[in-house]
């Protein structure tokens, strides 16, 4: 009993501070995965049943609506591609670093299980076997959802932007103001930190990732400012935002593979790297 207690304390310390126990965690995660998936079934079955019972009329209407949206998006995409090319050209002209588009995007499904009511964490059905890595950005179609904190072979844990221990470097594109969006523990509220009282922030301002810190690529939508409170006597204003991603409703999330500019830097001198990379060919 005493020995086991000490072992648990040791394990917890190792798990918190190092990645030494990761293999053990992987093995255990594999063991419990069937139960996790089974436990997720009632939730996903409820949704599937609802879909099955949706009337023909509704499906047809949905289809029409989706086709219209697709057409509109395609149109916009054409414009975007032209703009992207132009942007790249201009950036080369002024010698600025290229903004990177994500190299790969994949859809993962949430496994509908309740993990811990006091943390904003969700489980997804992709893991290290599918190339998911720790720190990987996770989005839904509306905005940034969070990042991967733990990878098992077939599943991964994602911490949401609303978790109190999570923070994203952000900016307000309207005026380039930088801040950090910290979670509050409530899925509908983020705090924008370190914005001076005198700064120009208004309700309704868009908040996007700034790309600082290298975890999240720049310019993805995070939230919308919902309240600005200037507090006399305090150095910073109290600003809250609502996350754009549907943190408590999305069933499917997007995993982004990309390399931050920091990782990119060594690869920029292509000649030696390439020579080392494939001596066979």
């Amino acid at each position: 009993m005493v020995v086991l207690s000490l072992v648990s304390l040791l394990l917890m310390t190792l798990d918190q501070r190092t990645s030494l126990v990761a293999p053990l965690r992987d093995g255990l995660a594999l063991l419990v995965e069937p139960i996790q998936r089974l436990a997720g079934l009632p939730g996903s079955m409820a949704v599937r049943l609802r879909e099955d019972w949706a009337g023909r009329e509704r499906l047809l209407a949905d289809n029409r609506r989706l086709r219209r949206t697709l057409r509109e998006l395609r149109l916009r995409q054409q414009k975007l591609e032209a703009l992207e090319a132009e942007n790249a050209r201009l950036r080369r002209l002024v010698g600025a670093a290229q903004r990177l588009a994500p190299q790969r995007v994949e859809i993962a499904e949430l496994i509908a299980v309740d993990l811990d009511p006091y943390r904003q964490v969700v489980l997804i059905d992709r893991g290290s076997l599918q190339g998911v890595y720790e720190g990987q950005p996770v989005l839904d179609d509306a905005g940034v959802m969070g990042q991967v904190i733990e990878v098992a072979p077939d599943t991964a844990l994602v911490i949401l932007v609303s978790d109190p221990s999570h923070a994203v470097p952000v900016q307000i594109p309207r005026n380039g103001l930088r801040s950090v969006a910290a979670g509050t523990g409530r899925p509908d509220r983020l705090h924008l930190l370190y914005i001076p009282n005198s700064a120009d922030v208004r309700v309704g301002d868009q908040v996007t990732t700034s790309g600082l810190g290298g975890r999240f690529p720049a310019d993805y939508p995070v939230g919308v400012v919902t309240a600005v409170e200037h507090r006399p006597g305090e150095p910073f204003a109290e600003i809250t935002a609502r996350p754009l991603a549907r943190l408590d409703r999305s069933r499917e999330v997007l995993l982004l593979w990309w390399r931050s500019p920091q990782d990119q830097a060594p690869a920029r001198s292509p000649v030696p790297g390439k020579a080392d990379g494939d001596p066979a060919s």
Binding site: M1, L4, S5, V7, S8, L9, L10, L11, M12, L14, D15, Q16, V21, L24, R25, L28, A29, L31, V32, I35, Q36, L115, D116, R119, V121, L123, I149, E150, A152, L157
Partner: peptide, 29 residues
Amino acid sequence: GVAVAWTSGLLVDAATGALLGQHALGYAV
């Protein structure tokens, strides 16, 4: 007994994404 409890706790830790050893300690005690 304590050993089975500890092992199950470890599995619960892995399943819920808690710190490894957290439930194990609580269950064993």
